[in-house]
Design a binder for these strands. Structure first.
Lengths: 216, 216
DNA sequence: CTTGATTAGTGAACCTTTTCACAAGAATGG
DNA sequence: CCATTCTTGTGAAAAGGTTCACTAATCAAG
């Protein structure tokens, strides 16, 4: 049995995104070559990535968009809605609450927390704000969520992360610049816009392209 | 001469970030082992990455934080201020305008554009909003910028990108889900939060960690 | 001055990931 | 049924990146 490269899994999300676009355009059939052009990838890579998870295509024909999309969703675990809990309702937090692409792709916020006492109890983007100290209570009710989105200030980040872990949440999307210390069984994705800007700076300065082929 | 891996350049930004933290803490000397622990990297990798660009350390001693930081900034082209132009002053756009980490790390917004006539002429986060049709005029004045930050709706993205390119801008940080079509000499970094969430979904569903080691 | 402890720099080995090239299967037209 | 065209699935080769293991340099203590 083959070891599946992490990066192949990430690319599945990319493929799924483009398959969804094809589906919305009413396209029923697609070849690895066409999909590769859309994604900016190599057709052989797409076929190989898919092969790690099964056989989804028909030789001489291509891939049926709907079938492949459903198969990929099943593999990635995105054939369901995932609930998000926001920590830190500042500029970025508010923007994330209203970020349409989340809802479109099956991610909905069910809870929002902030340290600011004046904010607690008020509504932002139709979400009632709670105190992060109350996370355990919130999680028992309709505010229950699967993934924490951390958008607090740097000073609150580690503290919040510990509360999140203690409440039994095992996944964090971390927008703070802090390297979180969490138990091994907790998954953390660090998002850092400035790193991406640095890549552009280097490319502009040296003329050598270090931008990434695929979106992240 | 060696070919420098793209990914090594990206990691330099990570090292620089942690060196800045050390510098702020008054630390003057650091070893590859210590820095590696901070960054969550392998010490040999740090030494190798640095070696692509020169010799910055002292054997038996380590790296002088300040010297290395300055050297890295020089290499990456971040020993200067970079000016950003924002396109699309919606939820996300506003959040980016007020994003403290940008200013802290040498990125400042000098211009902001929106299609909404009611917004044009008003101020958001102390920035006057212009029409994207006027980009060429704005660029001649104090609103001149080096990198475009694209945070419009999907429908406006490609159109805006073309205007940006025509105005002579060669770098775009793209927050829209659109795969931009631009000339070869224009650098594009695509940011997609949902892809990162998908990685967490897969990890949670399968138990196998596909999150990235380093922030992006 | 010598010894021992550190730590950067680096060639080589190792591992991972991407790409190639072709066999196998499917549709179409005669 | 056969030939042709298409496209997937996949072993193997190539490319790319990471880690190891050792050398060279530096410092401190005896």
């Amino acid at each position: 049995m083959h070891k599946i490269p992490n990066i192949a899994v990430i690319r599945l999300a990319l493929y799924a995104k483009h398959l969804e676009m094809l589906h919305n355009d009413g396209v029923e059939l697609v070849s690895s070559v066409k999909l590769a052009k859309m994604c900016g990838a190599n057709p052989a890579q797409i076929r190989k990535d898919l092969a790690y998870f099964g056989q989804f295509g028909v030789r001489g024909v291509g891939y049926y968009v709907n079938d492949l999309l459903n198969a990929l969703k099943e593999v990635m675990g995105t054939n369901r809605t995932w609930r998000l809990g926001l920590f830190g309702v500042g500029n970025l937090g508010k923007a994330l609450l209203g970020f349409e692409q989340f809802a479109q792709r099956g991610f909905i916020f069910t809870a929002a927390f902030d340290k600011d006492i004046d904010l607690v109890g008020t509504e932002v983007q139709g979400m009632e704000i709670s105190q992060s100290e109350d996370i355990k209570e919130v999680i028992k009710g309709p505010g229950c969520f699967d993934i924490a989105v951390l958008a607090t200030g740097a000073d609150r980040a580690q503290d919040c992360a510990m509360r999140i872990v203690e409440a039994g949440i095992h996944a964090i999307l971390n927008f703070t610049p802090v390297r979180l210390v969490v138990p091994e069984n907790v998954f953390v994705e660090n998002v850092d816009f400035t790193v991406r800007l640095h890549a552009l700076c280097y490319s502009l300065t040296t003329g050598s392209d270090v931008t990434q082929r695929h979106p992240r």
